[in-house]
Amino acid sequence: MARMTPGHNERGELFSAYLDGELTRDEVALVGDMLDGDEDAIAEFHAIREVRATLRLLPEFEVPAALLPDGHLGDRLSAYLDGELVSLEYRRVSRHLVDCPECRAELAELDRARIAVRSLPGVDTGMTGEIPVLPARKRRRGLIAGGIAATAAAAVLVLGLGIGGADAPVYSLDDLAARHVARASAEPASAVLPAMIEVSAP
C-alpha cells in the first residue's frame, strides 16, 4: 500500500485504528505527528474515541439459558443407545455418564422406553430366550489410564451386565444397541440395563 500524505478521511481512519491497537509502529508515529499541536486533529481524535467508547460500553445482554446446553447429555442419550454417536462424542458421553447420576438415571429411563417399544408383540424372532454371548471386544485393552490421553483407546466405559459374578460377560457400550434388539425381543420383561456402570481399572 502506497503511503501518501493522509487526507482528512485517512486521518480519521488512522485515529480509529490507533485506538483499536491495529497500527504499525510507523503509523503510530505518524498519528503522533498529526496530533502534535493540531487542534482540529485533536478534536477529531477525541470524537472518534468517544464513539468507540460508547459502543464498547453498550450493556451486554444475557443469552437466554434455554439456548445453551445445560451440561447434561439430552438427546445424545438416545443416539448413544442407538449406537449413532461418532467416536469423539461417544467418548465424551461415556465420560459424562461415569460422573453424572442424573444422566445415568435418564439413560435407564430411555432404555426402558426403548425396550418397551422394541418388545411390542407381533414379531416372531425365532429366538428362545437364550442369548448367545459374544466375546468382549478387543478394545478392552488399553482402558482408561487416568487422563484424557487414554480415551483415544475408544470405549472407556464398560458395562457389567449384572448377570452372574466375576465371569459375567463384559460388553463395551457400542455393542449395546445390537444387544438390545436381540434381548428386548427375546425377553420383553427383563431390562438389559446394567446394574452398575463402572470404569474398569487400568
Binding site: 480519521g12 481512519e13 483499536d20 491495529e22 472518534i48 468517544e50 464513539v51
Partner: peptide, 28 residues
C-alpha cells in the same frame, strides 16, 4: 481484531479498517 473480522467477512484487512472508521463516523 481486524484480522479476525477480515476472515469472518472475507474482505481484506484494509477494507475492515476503513469500514470500522466510516461506521463510527456515521454514528458520530
Amino acid at each position: 481484531t481486524y484480522d479476525e473480522i477480515a476472515q469472518a467477512a472475507d474482505v481484506p484487512v484494509g477494507t475492515v479498517r476503513s469500514r470500522i472508521h466510516r461506521g463510527r463516523k456515521m454514528l458520530r
